[in-house]
């Protein structure tokens, strides 16, 4: 399987931080996307093996992206500082692993490995 990961994160600096860490771990990064619109477009164009989602994207929530990922059976994790992302992004985010924010490289590696094993 190709190790491709879509990053959805509205802050450029944090998105770049994730990108650098993931690339060091041997992942090929798709995106990053800052908005729901761009994330959905990327999903259509270039479906990733897994996805990493921030919950709150500026003035909108990532929920529609999570819905499409679920529909396409693409596993995903969240990267958020919220302890209970489902309180903000809806029940779809309840049982999803959270790499946290700021995400550590080892945690990223462990969570993405877990996602790709399923």
């Amino acid at each position: 399987m190709q190790k491709t990961v879509l990053i959805v994160e509205d802050d450029y600096l944090i998105a770049m931080d994730l990108k650098l860490m993931l690339e060091e771990l041997g992942w090929q990064v798709i995106g990053p996307a800052a908005t729901v619109h761009n994330a959905l477009a990327l999903l259509e164009k270039e479906p990733p093996a897994v996805a990493l989602l921030d919950v709150s994207l500026g003035d909108e929530l990532v929920t529609p992206v999570a819905e499409l990922l679920k529909q396409r059976a693409i596993p995903f994790a969240v990267a958020t500082a919220y302890a209970k992302p489902e309180q903000y992004g809806g029940p779809l985010l309840a049982a999803v692993p959270n790499v946290g924010k700021p995400a550590g490289q080892r945690r990223l590696q462990a969570v993405l490995a877990e996602l790709t094993q399923e």
Binding site: L13, L20, A81, G100
Partner: peptide, 14 residues
């Protein structure tokens, strides 16, 4: 706070 720490770390790295 966590977001801010993430930004600071990213600036340090980049």
């Amino acid at each position: 706070i966590k977001n801010l720490l993430g930004v600071v770390r990213s600036i340090a790295r980049q």
